[in-house]
Every structure is written in C-alpha cells, then in structure tokens.
Design a binder for these strands. Structure first.
Length: 439
DNA sequence: CGTCCACGTCTAC
DNA sequence: TAGACCTGGACGG
C-alpha cells in the first residue's frame, strides 16, 4: 500500500479500529524481521496513528487510571508514551484481527486486553518496510504533500538550485526530500493530468511557478467539474489550471477520498482504484524505465532526457479503459507500447537481476493454509475464467490475452534482450548468512 | 517450473 | 549508477 494516500488511509484505519480499544502487554516482533524490537510493555495503553508523506507514526500511550496500572502508581517513573515510526516499503499495511487469524507476514503485533484477544499487526510480505521505536519523522524527508502543502510548495520553490532538480521531472518527483508522499503511480498520474513529458528537466518545469499559489483555492478544485465551470462563469473568472505542485497535493487527496481503497490488488474493491487510474498501467499508455529502472507510465512524448535505449517493460495486467470512449484514446491501445518497445531497445540496459536463489527458509510464521484454508471461495465456474482477478474491468471479452500475445510480433527482439541475463549465480545461502547491519 | 514484475528505499563499488 | 533486500502473482513453455 505504499504511497502517501495509502499511508494516510492506514493511519485512518488504525485510528478507527483502535478507538477505545485497550492494548496490553509487550509488543511482539516476528522472528524473521530484521527490524528492531519495540521495547514497550504496559498493562494498559492505547494506540493512535498519524501520517506524514510516506511514513506513519503510532503513538503508544499508557492509560492513566486507577483501574489500570494501579499497582505501580508509586512508581513515579510511570511509563511515557512511545512513538514508533513506520515506512511501508513495497508491501506494508496494518491489519486488526482476532489472534487466531494473525495474518501471514505480520511482523509487529500489538495485543488487546480483551478475551479473546485481538491484535493490530504490521503486515509486510516483502519485508522492505521498517519501523523505529522512539522514532521521529525521518529528517531528510520533506513536508507532506497532502497535509503540509504550503511548506511543501515553499520547500520546492526555494530550492530549485539544488541538483536534485537537474534530473527529469519524473525522477525528481520520487525524491522524498522534496516530494514526501509521491510514488510511482502518483508521478504518472500527476504528470499525465498536465500532459507534461516525464523526461523534461525538473527545474524547467518548476521554475516560474508562483510561490504562493494564493488565487487558486484548493478547496475549489474538489468541486465537480461542472460546478467549477459554473462558478467561474458567474464570476467571470477563468478557472485557473492547477499547476504541477498543486496537483502533487490534490491528486493524492483524490485517492484518500476513494476511501478504503488505495493501491491494493488484494482488496475486493480494487476496481475502484483501478477505475481512478488514468495513466499508470493503463492500456494504451507508453512506459519506459527511468534511470533507476523504475517504470514510468506516460502518454505521448517522453521528453528530451529519456534514457537512450530504455526499454518498455512488459506489462501484463494492463488496465483496459474503454468505458468513456471520449474520442480517440481507445483504439490506440497497445500500439503505443509496441512503439516504445520497438524503438530498437538496444539491450544496453545491462542486465543484472540475477538472484532467485531459492532459499530454504521456511514460511516463517504459520502456514497460510491452516485454518480456514477455504478462504478463497473460487465460486466462479472454473473452466475458463482466467485468474486475472485484477482485470475485472469490462471489456475483457475479446482482446485481453490475445493482445498480450501480440508480442509475437517482435518477440525475437525482446527475447534477445532478455537473454542476456547471464552472469552471477547466487552466492550466499539464505537465512542467517547475511544479517549484519543493524538499523 | 522458470522468468518477470511489483505501490521503496538503502548502501556499497 | 548498480545491486540488495524479499515474497508472490501472472505468464510462458
């Protein structure tokens, strides 16, 4: 769930689920996690959450009450609240379940004092996420794009001489020192709204923007289009087009407004988010790897700083957007991709990506299948449903798969590129081997 | 069964 | 500017 909106939704989730709930005992960490233990233990405490950009902070507060902690009242050094700051990596999220339903990959757990007990878990399958006990907002991260808009804007515009702005705008947008909360799907959606070519120098795009941004009332932008149009007519004021920094604020807030649904293909209503996406993973859009080999989705011209010979990664699961068939759009599907890919991909992107050492590590926490293994209902009529649950959008009728198959066109070409993944073989065995590095 | 890809940092050459 | 760090889903053979 990891971009600003998802982190914020996670904080809302925690506050909603934990309101009035009393937690008790020690905080428990999974065996496999390399993150630090959280040295907090209390007979009765509550949990509150707050988000800032791509971080979430939980505050564990001992409950003062004669009912709780009575025996140690004398202990003047009564426990103080503790902050734990989380980063979600690529796959982190919070869950609140019965103890018996502890999710797989629940790496940090807070237990309630109920009976039966329940547990708030930080779940993180890939373990790229992290937490810091006694944590503070990471100092190098800038103001939150959603909830510290004015200082965010100020921070960017007063530092345009920083070499961070020498890079293509799409890469600078991932720099958390200036865009705390923007991630890969947001950069695509934001640039797409303004049709800004992603590989144009960031400074070029940003210089000239007004520091204040006073005239455009952010609130106004949340009104429906028609309404806005109306208003501007009445007042005779031309509704100003939001600039890039304004969209860095409002676009993420749109996702927050979608509610429980952010980027999370596992959720049942993932389709709501999918329907919201206009560019990221949308069929018909172009994509290229940026200089960090992150996929940049865009439409039209990539811009002058596009990595030469960059390939367009093969996207499976592209979203089909036929619904509103405004004019063109549609029919272009896939052709764009071919084009990008076709531009003589100069395999140069060297290779790398070896790995795959099948480690022997066992599924740490319990076996997923245990208890209610039947979770997956599989109600659908087997035979030919194709699994891609992620493609619920209508129109999957004909094309879909077939279109993917289209790769056959230049397949040989792509094949050659792929091929060169030679090199290194897994060294190091799994498990305990590495493990050094603290913090 | 093997390959590729994924919402993000981190840190060694 | 490359990997490293991880698991798992979608696909291809």
């Amino acid at each position: 769930m990891p971009e600003g909106p998802e982190l914020h939704l996670a904080s809302l989730f925690v506050n909603r689920m934990c309101e009035g709930v009393v937690f008790s005992g020690a905080v428990e960490k999974s065996e496999v996690s390399k993150n630090p233990e959280v040295p907090f233990c209390c007979d009765a405490y509550c949990i509150k959450a707050q988000s800032r950009g791509k971080e979430v902070r939980l505050t564990l507060s001992p409950i003062k009450s004669e009912n709780y902690n009575k025996r140690k009242v004398s202990k003047d050094q009564s426990q103080q609240p503790m902050n734990v700051v989380f980063r979600f990596g690529m796959s982190g999220f919070f869950r609140f379940t019965a103890v018996d339903d502890l999710p797989k990959h629940a790496h940090l757990r807070f237990y309630t004092n109920e009976t039966p007990r329940k547990v708030l878990s930080f779940v993180d399958p890939r373990r790229f996420g992290s937490w810091q006990p006694h944590g503070i907002w990471q100092p190098d991260r800038g103001p939150c794009i959603m909830f510290e808009y004015e200082s965010f804007r100020e921070n960017v515009l007063s530092n345009l001489s920083d070499k961070a702005f020498d890079r293509p705008i799409c890469e600078t947008l991932l720099n958390q020192k200036y865009f705390n909360g923007i991630g890969n799907y947001l950069r695509a959606e934001i640039l797409y709204r303004l049709r800004i070519p992603p590989f144009v120098k960031a400074r070029t795009v940003l210089e000239g923007l007004e520091p204040e941004d006073e005239e455009k009332k952010i609130v106004k932008q949340e009104i429906t289009v028609s309404e806005t149009a109306d208003t501007s007519k009445k007042k005779g004021i031309e509704a100003e087009t939001p600039d890039l920094l304004s969209l860095c604020h409002t676009v993420p807030l749109e996702v927050v407004k979608l509610g429980g649904k952010g980027y999370d293909p596992e959720k049942a209503d993932y389709s709501t988010f999918q329907a919201w996406l206009q560019c990221y993973c949308v069929n018909g859009m172009n994509s290229l790897w940026d200089h960090n080999r992150r996929t940049m989705w865009f439409k039209g011209d990539p811009g002058p700083m596009a990595p030469k010979g960059s390939k367009s990664p093969k996207a499976k699961w592209k979203i089909q957007k036929d619904d509103h068939d405004y004019t063109d759009a549609k029919k272009t599907k896939r052709k764009c991709i071919d084009k990008a890919a076709g531009e003589k991909p100069v395999k140069q992107t060297a290779s790398k990506r070896v790995k795959k050492e099948t480690k022997t590590s066992k599924p740490q926490s319990g076996s997923k299948t245990l208890k209610s293994s039947n979770k997956r209902v599989k109600a659908e009529p087997a035979d030919e449903i194709k699994k891609p649950k992620t493609v619920p959008l209508r129109t999957r009728t004909n094309k879909i798969k077939g279109q993917n198959g289209e790769e056959k066109i230049k397949e040989k070409k792509s094949v050659t590129c792929r091929k060169e993944r030679t090199k290194a073989k897994p060294q190091r065995r799994s498990g305990g081997a590495k493990r050094g590095r603290t913090r």
